[in-house]
Simulated scan of single mutants.
Amino acid sequence: MEHEIRAEYEEGLLPHEDTPVKLWHMTRIGSTTAMCGRDLAPAAATQTAEAWGTPKAEPFCFLCGAQYLREQPGH
């Protein structure tokens, strides 16, 4: 299954290139629902799943991280 990382922002803030990210979440490509169940803005910033575990994707939702690991072969 293909994944991407999607940003969550503070309540009331609209996604924009200079809006600070509250938390990064893992989603399935094309979905705005994080693996932890949180609904994210369709216009939220995204990164490839390869950014997971790197400083670019911090802070990261620990629930999404756990779910993502469970879907990876060998885990």
Rank of each mutant, 00 (worst) to 15 (best):
H16I: 00
A44S: 03
L63R: 07
V21Q: 06
P55H: 05
L13G: 06
T46D: 03
P55Q: 02
G37E: 02
C36Q: 03
A7C: 14
A45H: 14
M1E: 14
L23F: 01
E10G: 04
I29R: 15
R6G: 10
T33A: 04
T54G: 04
R38H: 05
E10C: 11
T19L: 13
C36V: 00
V21D: 02
R38Y: 06
G53E: 00
E50F: 05
H16T: 12
A43I: 05
G30T: 05
A49W: 04
F60A: 02
G30K: 01
A66V: 12
F62L: 13
Y9L: 09
Q47H: 06
H16L: 11
A49I: 01
E11S: 12
E10D: 15
E2V: 10
A34Y: 03
L69D: 12
Y9S: 06
P15T: 03
C36D: 04
F62E: 10
R28Q: 10
S31K: 06
F62I: 09
A51W: 07
R38T: 10
L13Q: 15
E4K: 12
A45I: 09
M35T: 07
R38P: 00
Y68S: 04
T33K: 03
I29F: 05
L13T: 14
D18C: 06
P59T: 00
E17I: 13
E50P: 03
I5K: 01
L23C: 01
P55N: 08
E58T: 06
T19D: 11
W52S: 04
W52D: 01
E10Y: 13
G74C: 13
A43C: 05
Q67A: 15
A44P: 01
E17L: 14
H16C: 10
E8G: 13
E10A: 15
A7P: 09
K22R: 14
A7S: 12
A66G: 00
F62D: 10
E58N: 12
A51V: 05
A49E: 05
R38K: 13
V21I: 12
G74E: 14
K56A: 08
G74Q: 14
T27S: 04
A66I: 08
F60G: 00
W24A: 01
L13M: 15
A51S: 13
S31Q: 07
P20K: 07
P59N: 07
H75C: 11
C61N: 02
W52K: 02
T19P: 08
E17P: 12
A51E: 09
H25M: 04
Q72S: 14
E10R: 14
T48D: 07
T54Q: 08
L23T: 03
Q47I: 00
T33H: 01
M1Y: 10
A44N: 00
L13E: 15
W24Y: 01
Q67T: 12
A57H: 02
V21C: 04
T48I: 00
A43F: 10
A7Y: 11
D39G: 03
C61I: 02
G37V: 02
Q47W: 05
D18V: 09
G12F: 15
S31D: 10
G30M: 02
T19F: 07
H16A: 15
I5R: 04
G74V: 11
P42V: 10
L14N: 11
G12M: 12
A43E: 08
E8Q: 14
E58S: 10
L23H: 02
T32M: 09
A43D: 11
I5L: 06
